[in-house]
């Protein structure tokens, strides 16, 4: 009799077995299908982005910007990536303020996707606008240009074209002959201090454990 109930139980379970497995499978598949996919994805590969970066042609010179402002060219749109505080203090006429952390926010989605105009991105410096430009470029938007020299240069020269010179606004242009400057620093020090070579003593900062992570 005992064995009979056993058999019965076994039968019950074996009847349900496929059901259990099927629901198990479905559950896992649903899990995978509903897995959160990132909303946005880069459409330009890293290698292509590197090429785009090396081409260095999606920038715009301050003198060109002056022309655009003076002619009120409608095919351009200025986007100010700085925070609202700096924006209020001063900005290029007609610029739209999109603080760079909100670049991909829903609020500006329509504007970013509107490729009928060329956006001139600017921040305080060239390199600050570079990151946002790279993100947009990698998302497939090709209508963005970076203002060389950033707003800091633009505001310095004002609207006077004659004050603009490329050597001042190109961030990557070497301003010095590095090797020469470095040589001259100790060279003069050595010559100046008679024959004796100055012993250079450098205060070594004590390293605390935390100090390294600091920067």
């Amino acid at each position: 009799m005992n064995q009979q109930t056993h058999l019965k139980d076994h039968k019950k379970i074996s009847l349900k077995l496929p059901l259990i497995i099927v629901s198990f499978v479905i559950l896992i598949i649903i899990g995978f299908l509903t897995m959160r996919e990132p909303e946005r994805k880069f459409v330009v590969s890293v290698d292509d982005m590197q090429k785009a970066v090396l081409q260095r042609n999606e920038t715009i010179k301050p003198e060109e910007v002056l022309k655009i402002i003076n002619s009120a060219d409608e095919s351009y749109r200025f986007i100010d990536l700085r925070n609202p505080h700096d924006f209020i203090k001063g900005h290029i006429k007609g610029a739209i303020n999109i603080p760079k952390q909100y670049l991909l926010a829903d609020e500006y989605d329509k504007l970013i996707k509107d490729t009928s105009k060329i956006n001139i991105l600017y921040a305080k410096t060239h390199d600050e606008a570079c990151g946002p430009w790279m993100i947009l470029k990698q998302l497939g938007f090709n209508n963005n240009r970076i203002l060389l020299g950033g707003y800091s240069y633009y505001s310095k020269t004002g609207t006077l074209a004659q004050n603009i010179s490329p050597k001042d606004y190109l961030d990557e242009k070497p301003k010095y002959d590095y090797a020469k400057v470095v040589k001259s620093v100790s060279g003069s020090a050595v010559i100046g201090s008679s024959k004796k070579k100055k012993k250079i003593k450098i205060k070594r900062k004590k390293k605390k454990k935390g100090a390294e992570g600091g920067c």
Partner: peptide, 13 residues
Amino acid sequence: KAAGQFFGGGTQV
């Protein structure tokens, strides 16, 4: 200043 002297000179060149 001290760092400048440390890095200065022909050594780097």
